[in-house]
Design a protein around this nucleic acid. Structure first.
Length: 556
RNA sequence: GCGCCCGUAGCUCAGUGGAUAGAGCGUCGGACUUCGAAUCCGCAGGUCAUGGGUUCAAAUCCCAUCGGGCGCUCCA
């Protein structure tokens, strides 16, 4: 709907700029002050450096053209101070807008901009050595919502979880369980190495083993068995927690498999074939400095053991081999230094490193009140994602995480999250949805129904109503932008803004009244409800038709 | 020391070239005999870390400095 206006602006701008001038695509926003107009365009500012002319001059010229070409939808066009072009649109435009949203319904906001391009989105990928914690949860929400948004924009998205089920970490888990198994049976047995993990889940696993181990003579086979058992146990728990949190994957990719099917060996051979490895100090090194890394990296240790980096090369090569247009990884910010070597390896293998993008999620710092929560995975002292979701609720956790840019650290006060559960912004947004549903319920008791066929184009929208509609119209462009720039957190801020306008409108205006305008206002509410519903769906948050009142807020 | 992220209201954070810099929470004061008060309105609260620079225009871009976090392993 808004595209009509954008196209007219683009045409006017390119007409003014003349042929052969590449100009930026027009964007419109809602001006800060409603008195300034329904929409505003900064196209003159974008054009100024290209044409080397003052923005005000450009704005005047573009506006002059638009007064002719856009006369069908535009009531007035104003050019203001530095170079803003402000539009006041005709009532017919708003009626078209209303129709357009109602017609698209649940599809409003989706597009085909991705045109089927294939994206592999890898996120969380927490080691299967213990329950996933809050930091993983942040990446989980980011990945899940980004996936939903990309899908809505026509991308073909594969959601993948990489399981580090090979190597020392899981072996250490195995030993931890082994130790606990014998400790719990008061059997003294000399072990070749200590376990490193603690926490209740270790006991859960050793208990689940029942009495399957001998009282003595532990051998490698037993260790392998226990490790595999423990990994499967932990992984099942992770899947369960994520599933309950409505975070699903298309594929769980096993690192171990990369060893078993020879991928890791082939990856190293591939590097060697390109002369990108060397032997030194009894180890095998990847010459990553040749590809922009700070130093060369070991892929096979003196001991003969392969490093995690070796299998990571194989894994990423595997991803490239599957023919995706974009590979997006979500990693914890502490892995930042790891990216150059991975890209280096991909370059060495002949892949385009620019197709791989990594979003680094900054840390979540937990507090209980003023007291920081000690987080030590090895000591088993940490708040799990499950704990948090159980305490604060899945909707609130999702919303909370997505109010901040993933590039900013965030402090999560668990006590506050609990205490404020009813003040949380997510309820503010959900309440708006429930409130509209409630309006429909009340309207029904007065004999009104909500049906697009009732739309009467002679209704005159008020300034507030146009304000509501204008924000609804920004929605599709916002989602497109969020997908392109991978900034899901902007969606929560949009919702808060839209809902704020709605609540104020509700306070000021009686929707269900005795006049014929009731039907039109109900349709407007329907429009807003569609946008709320669609946006909440993308966030994976429920859009309730009705909300339970809590006891602290008794009805009056 | 080097790299990345951050520094915006009392607190937690949006805003990354354009109009008087915003929200939530917290303080204080108002608004329900009528569609849900989990709401709304108002007051208070800012040298956008600091100093330079680029620009018609800088919280936003560049440089330096200060402060915080993370990383700089033949760890994962």
């Amino acid at each position: 709907m808004i595209d009509t206006l954008l196209n007219l602006i683009n045409d006017a701008a390119s007409g003014y700029a003349g042929p052969g001038i590449l100009l930026p695509r027009a964007v419109v926003t809602v001006p800060p002050n409603p008195a300034q107009g329904d929409f505003t365009s900064g196209i003159a500012f974008a054009l100024a450096p290209v044409l080397k002319q003052p923005p005000l001059e450009i704005a005047a010229a573009v506006a002059a053209t638009l007064r002719d070409t856009a006369a069908g939808i535009v009531e007035t066009i104003d050019v203001v101070k530095p170079g803003h072009i402000n539009f006041l649109l005709r009532q017919s435009f708003w009626h078209d807008a209303l129709d357009s949203v109602l017609e698209k319904g649940t599809g409003y906001g989706s597009s085909t901009a991705g045109s089927g391009r294939r994206v592999l989105l890898e996120y969380i990928s927490a080691n299967p050595t213990g329950p996933i914690h809050v930091g993983h949860g942040r990446g989980a929400v980011l990945g899940d919502v980004l996936a939903r948004i990309l899908v809505s924009q026509g991308y073909e998205v594969t959601r993948e979880y990489y399981i580090n089920d090979a190597g020392n970490q899981v072996l250490s888990l195995g030993y931890s369980v082994l130790n606990d198994y014998y400790r719990s049976r008061s059997i003294d047995i000399p072990l070749s190495r200590p376990g490193e993990y603690q926490g209740g889940y270790i006991r859960d696993i050793s208990t689940a083993l029942a009495d399957t181990l001998p009282a003595a003579d532990i051998n490698e086979e037993h260790i392998r068995h226990i490790t595999e058992f423990a990994v499967n146990h932990v992984l099942a728990g992770i899947r369960q927690v994520l599933g309950d949190f409505n975070i699903l994957f298309d594929r769980w990719f096993s690192e171990k498999q990369l060893y078993e099917d020879g991928s890791v060996r082939r990856a190293i051979e591939g590097l060697a074939a390109r002369g990108a490895v060397k032997q030194e100090d009894g180890a095998t090194w990847f010459l990553s400095t040749r590809y922009g890394d700070e130093k060369d990296r070991v892929i096979q240790k003196q001991s003969g053991e392969l490093t995690y980096f070796a299998s990571d090369i194989a894994y990423h090569a595997n991803k490239y081999g599957r023919g995706y247009d974009h590979l997006v990884n979500i990693w914890g910010a502490d892995h930042h230094g790891y990216l150059p070597r991975v890209k280096a390896a991909m370059s060495a293998l002949g892949y385009d490193p620019d197709r791989l993008a990594v979003m680094f999620v900054q840390m979540v710092r937990l507090t209980r009140g003023d007291k920081p929560v000690a987080m030590s995975k090895r000591a088993g002292e940490y708040v799990t994602l499950k704990d948090l979701v159980d305490e604060a609720g899945g909707d609130a956790v999702r919303f909370f995480f997505l109010q901040r840019s993933h590039e900013s650290q965030l402090v999560f006060d668990i006590e506050l999250a609990k205490k404020q559960s009813q003040e949380n912004p997510v309820f503010y947004v959900q309440y708006a949805h429930a409130r509209i549903a409630s309006i429909f319920g009340f309207a029904a008791t007065r004999g009104w129904t909500v049906d697009a066929l009732m739309h009467r184009r002679d209704y005159v929208f008020s300034a507030q109503e146009k304000r509501l509609l204008s924000h609804c119209l920004l929605y599709p462009g916002l989602i497109g932008d969020i997908a392109a720039r991978r900034e899901p957190h902007r969606l929560t801020h949009y919702l808060i803004e839209l809902v704020g306008i709605l609540h104020k409108y509700y306070t000021d205006t009686r929707v269900v009244d005795s006049d014929a305008g009731t039907e039109q206002r109900l349709l407007l509410m329907k429009t807003v409800k569609i946008v709320l519903r669609n946006a909440l769906d993308l966030l994976g948050i429920t859009a309730p038709e009705k909300m339970e009142k809590l006891e602290e807020h008794p009805a009056r």
